[in-house]
Design a protein around this nucleic acid. Structure first.
Lengths: 461, 461
DNA sequence: AAATTTGTCTATTTACATTTC
DNA sequence: GGAAATGTAAATAGACAAATT
């Protein structure tokens, strides 16, 4: 019997204990998971201190600790020394952004797509390839020399994004997500910690949860990661690496300035952190700033994906890998893919080397800018962050709305947007904002229809 | 001070202890790993009992246990209650079969390729696709209906391999390895155990090691997994699933008979094991036996890859997933790939639905049989297991040779073959055999050259 | 500024089950 | 067939450090 009767204390979570159900810690972890998923424990709830639970259940402190650890690695809860353990805001929100079936007649502004200007040129290049003699080799493993020039094309693309590398340090992946998951799998082991923005690309959240890698939101005053906050996380959170999107951060739209890049690079070098730099939107920017990889070339794995730049169906990414990480990343990519399709590797290489490449990029930018102007007309630019040649916006909501509420209301009106909660990491507080994928609607007309509906919702308050 | 002086006992491994290097268990694990990789501890070495080491180092038993666990999850050592802990045979052998660069002028009989008869028909189909209107959509996400018919094609392919499923339970992956790694990642967590053949497809070894999943070789009298051995492993090894290649097992060439399939299916149902059934060579067999998935449809994830059947560059696989595993496997595939290329999904679907499909398969079989007859001429069929329409053989070596020695000698002669050790799992003893990929040489002439050289090496003894 | 709260980590204790002899 | 050898795994204890008050 516990010395105190806990009946009188309000405990936010009262698990049952069943001594026959061994191991205890797993039994508790299962209960905790179920209670969170079923909604008995809502996001943001503070769980009782581990010692209190241990006392209440008459088990050892470490048994509780272990149960919490299981849930934490699944991304369900998040604990901090001194302040306690909280149910994560993103525990129940759906981070899988590309479902199997979509309800029809929705204006799609959730999942991120680009416009379709590049499909034609890609088609032409593919046609050209198929006219050549021996072209059937693209269904095999290609000719020995092919891989070399395909990687050289990667070098060229990376150079365009300010990253200097050599073909021996370029690896090919089946798209950006594939590259990132492989890099994580190759460089981290179960239980490792990675620093990220407090709102970030959901793909890394689900991948990390699957691999048992813990994401640590790097806090700071504003929304941007800053060097002091990073240094703090190095000292106190034992992080092993960083995942960053310095150019038009997803979803918060900020672009990191050069000084901050330098400072973060310096810290990464000093603290021996690796950085996964996602250059997703780098080349779409009006002014291409030097990548963090430029300032910390031995620490930074730079990922340059073609799906946003060229076409979403061209699932290919180039990864520039520092020498010391080359072997593990190559092995992880092998374990996951064996190899990429030689046909696509060739097509992509030709697209990059083609005269039309810059034109495609320019087209994308132009189309995107026009759409952003449309957005500004309806939503203004003060509370709707981003713009320029960014393919999404970050709409800060007027006061009574939470992101989730707004997402649901918008869906009811026929517009799909993604709530801030989908991007929230760990115990960070979900922003009262939604992300708008402005290039996803097929036409500007459809985008405008969506904007009208969203504007109405906002003006209610 | 330990009570006994261990100076006099011969201990196979004497780690140093440095009490300043905390944590102790990590310090020990690092030493163990280094000693294995540097060759101070050769494969097969029995390590001292955990208690003995603990006594010697004056630390607790569990500290040693934990250090051993770290090494075991990396696939370096393998412990059994009662008999002790041994250095794995495959700890140092290279399981990554597709290196970046190959020495030139080698006759390739290591990495497994098929012949090239299907390249032409695939080319024709792709050409046809590109003639259609709106064909540029394959660079986007395709039309909504596309995915449906592409999955139906998968259903059709699976049915051809005896597996009955519905489109809702078919998922697409970027090739067989991609499907297997995703399935493992989706269904297992760090530390889980999976039963496999004592020699198996190296891709699962490296993927499992990366994910911290432990492979348990299922032992039995002969080389084949049998139901009693499996039942034993269920009771004693706490395995959560199975990975099997019932049709022309890689590398040992055996095909599981129908009774054994039924028995294994029954055990899987009773013990609630999942089965990852790799149907890699299923459709190449002369007689297509019912898959294990037929007898345990709710337990079996059946993977049907096109790279061996059609072309290695067509990196696509269909996965038939039981309802209860659908969600985790789909999410894992999403985390790893987001999606497969719509262009390839369409091309593959058309290839499967085409009239030429059966013809391609027949072509492959015919070509392979001819090659196998050539192999029989030189190496006989008694010690060179496999044949028929199998694209590799398992050559049992005459007595003084180990697989590794033979691999090296053959390489010196200009023929690449893969030693049994590359396929060995955990503490299983590496077979004195090598695998010959008989369809990898581009021509029969080249295959014959290779066979002559191998024959000479064998005849020396 | 010091004391308290709180989570983290590793080593230790204990119980257990199987294999070997 | 029973005792000894051996690895496995969970619970517990204790030390530690950061955050809060």
């Amino acid at each position: 019997m516990p010395i105190n009767s806990f009946e009188n204390y309000p405990m936010s979570w009262k698990p049952t204990i069943n001594r026959k159900e061994r191991p205890i810690y797993q039994w508790l972890a299962r209960q905790l998971e179920a209670d969170i998923i079923e909604g008995n424990l809502v996001p943001g709830t503070k769980l009782p201190p581990q010692r209190e639970l241990a006392d209440y259940l008459e088990v050892n402190l470490s048994t509780i600790s272990k149960a919490f650890k299981v849930a934490e690695l699944k991304g369900l809860i998040s604990g901090t020394v001194g302040s306690g353990t909280y149910v994560s805001y993103d525990a129940v929100s759906n981070a899988y952004l590309l479902g199997e079936e979509k309800p029809k007649h929705m204006i799609e502004m959730g999942a991120m797509l680009t416009d379709r200007v590049s499909y034609g040129p890609l088609y032409d290049l593919l046609q050209e390839m198929l006219q050549e003699s021996d072209c059937a080799r693209w269904f095999g493993y290609g000719r020995p020399g092919d891989a070399v020039w395909q990687k050289d094309a990667g070098v060229q693309l990376l150079k365009r994004a300010s990253v200097e590398t050599i073909r021996e340090q370029v690896l090919l992946a089946n798209g950006g997500q594939n590259a990132i998951t492989a890099t994580l799998a190759g460089l981290c082991k179960h239980g490792d910690r990675i620093g990220v923005d407090h709102h970030t690309y959901p793909g890394i959240k689900t991948a990390a949860a699957m691999l048992g890698i813990q994401l640590v939101p790097i806090r700071s005053q504003g929304d941007e990661i800053n060097p002091e906050a990073l240094l703090y996380a190095c000292k106190n959170e034992n992080i092993k690496g960083l995942y960053l999107i310095p150019d038009y951060q997803n979803p918060m739209t900020y672009t990191m300035d050069v000084e901050t890049r330098k400072a973060i690079a310096q810290i990464a070098i000093k603290q021996d952190l690796f950085i996964i730099e996602n250059g997703m939107f780098h080349l779409l920017q009006d002014e291409v700033l030097p990548a963090i990889a430029v300032f910390a070339p031995e620490q930074t794995i730079y990922v340059s994906s073609l799906s946003k730049l060229m076409a979403p169906g061209l699932r290919l990414a180039y990864v520039a890998v520092p020498r010391k990480f080359l072997d593990p990343v190559r092995k992880a990519l092998y374990n996951i893919n064996i190899s990429v399709s030689p046909l696509f590797a060739e097509l992509a290489a030709r697209a990059i080397a083609s005269k039309g490449f810059e034109q495609i990029v320019a087209f994308h930018r132009k189309e995107t800018k026009a759409r952003n102007q449309l957005v500004n007309q309806y939503l203004g630019s003060e509370n709707c962050l981003g713009g320029g040649s960014g393919i999404f916006r970050w709409l800060r909501l007027p006061n009574p709305y939470t992101g989730d509420q707004f997402e649901q209301l918008a869906a009811a009106q026929g517009v799909e947007v993604y709530s801030g909660g989908r991007f929230t990491v760990g115990n960070a507080t979900p922003a009262k904002a939604v992300r708008l994928a402005i290039c996803a609607p097929e036409t500007k007309d459809e985008l405008e229809k969506g904007l009208v509906l969203l504007k109405k919702l906002i003006d209610v308050h």
